[in-house]
Each structure stands twice: as structure tokens, then as C-alpha cells.
Nucleic acid binder design. Structure first.
Length: 181
DNA sequence: GTAAGGATTGGC
DNA sequence: CCAATCCTTACT
């Protein structure tokens, strides 16, 4: 599928793999946001974080299947959205297969760092909960011709979880000036 | 029904 | 350092 930028959109097959494969693969990919007034934003993803299943105590799904986490059980390609601290919407992409709750938190874009700030710039609100990235006209992800390298680090803000989960190197950040040719 | 707290941010 | 701000979850 091609869009107005002649870019190739990523389908549900891309998101249906394990989150530890999808999260780093999203670094360097392009996010497209089409606004109702015709404007469009095209920004590269620079930082992601993986949350993997009910056993991952830092993952919201560790509390089981609830109204909030429901979409994570529906398979890859959907948007999982939630409000934090009463003011910031966190943008996540569901990955993995049905019944296997996983998601990637989008933490940074090329011109806007911070998960709370980027949803503000993109105009993301609760109506995006459950949006299908393979079909949506207002938000989707595209391949990028330039492969990029990334580095892994500990996830942010999950100190409350147990020793093993808070130390997982599941935060993926782009490495500038080190393209893989 | 009530209460506690969070995958954050910006300002003091 | 700390308040802002409200939804989800857990517990009575």
C-alpha cells in the first residue's frame, strides 16, 4: 500500500511478531499522521520500549485482562493508548499474536523527545485507542529506506516492578551518525 | 463507593 | 525538588 509520500505502509504481519523483534525494528521507521485539515506530519521513530506479556511485571497486562488492557490481547497492529498522571497519553503499538499481550511504547520521534510530548504534537487522544495501524487513514507506520543502528538500555519508570523485570534492556534508542550503510 | 498511585513533564 | 490531574485498579 502506498500513501501520498509514496511510502510503503507496514501491515499487521510486521506487528504480529514478538515484541523483542518489533520494538528495535521500529527504531528508524517513519510515523505518518494525517490531520483532519489536510496537514500531515512525517516523523522518524527514534526511541521505543518493549512490554512483554503477563509475566512482565512492568507490563500493564501483568494485572490481567481488563477493559484498559483488552486491546493487547487482540493481536499485532492495534494502538494501545492510556493516560498517565492525568495528563499525558502514552502511544503504544500492540505486537505478537492473539491472546499474547505485548506492546511497544513509542518514547521519541526525530523532532520531539518524550512519550507525553509526542502525543501532544501528534494530536493523539483517547479516540485512537484500538486504531488499526494497517488500515487507519490518520496514523500509520512506513518503512524507511535508510537502515539505522540502535542501542539497548534499561526501561524508564518501572522501578516498582521486580529486580529481573526492571533491569531488562528493552529500551531501544537510535544511534546518530552510525548508519548501517 | 472510595482511595491510591502511575511506562511524565515543566516549572520553581 | 514537586505539583498538575484523572483514569484505572484494588479493596471495603
Amino acid at each position: 500500500m502506498r500513501n501520498q509520500f509514496n511510502d510503503e505502509r507496514l501491515g499487521s504481519d510486521f506487528f504480529s511478531k514478538d515484541v523483542l523483534e518489533v520494538a528495535p525494528a521500529l527504531v528508524g521507521k517513519t510515523l505518518i499522521r494525517n490531520f483532519p485539515d489536510g496537514r500531515a506530519l512525517k516523523l522518524m521513530i527514534t526511541e521505543t520500549e518493549a512490554y512483554r506479556g503477563e509475566e512482565d511485571l512492568a507490563c500493564h497486562a501483568s494485572k490481567g485482562r481488563t477493559k484498559r488492557t483488552e486491546i493487547m490481547y487482540h493481536g499485532g497492529g492495534y494502538i494501545y493508548l492510556y493516560l498517565i498522571y492525568g495528563m499525558y497519553w502514552m502511544l503504544n503499538f500492540v505486537t505478537g499474536g492473539e491472546g499474547n499481550p505485548q506492546a511497544v511504547l513509542i518514547r521519541g520521534l526525530e523532532t520531539v523527545y518524550g512519550p507525553g510530548r509526542l502525543t501532544k504534537v501528534l494530536g493523539i487522544d483517547k479516540s485512537f485507542y484500538g486504531e488499526n495501524l494497517a488500515e487507519s487513514e490518520r496514523i500509520y507506520i512506513c518503512n524507511n529506506n535508510d537502515p539505522v543502528s540502535y542501542k539497548a538500555g534499561k526501561r524508564v519508570g518501572v522501578e516498582y516492578s521486580s529486580e529481573i523485570w526492571k533491569n531488562k534492556p528493552w529500551r531501544f534508542t537510535i544511534e546518530e551518525n552510525k548508519k548501517n550503510i
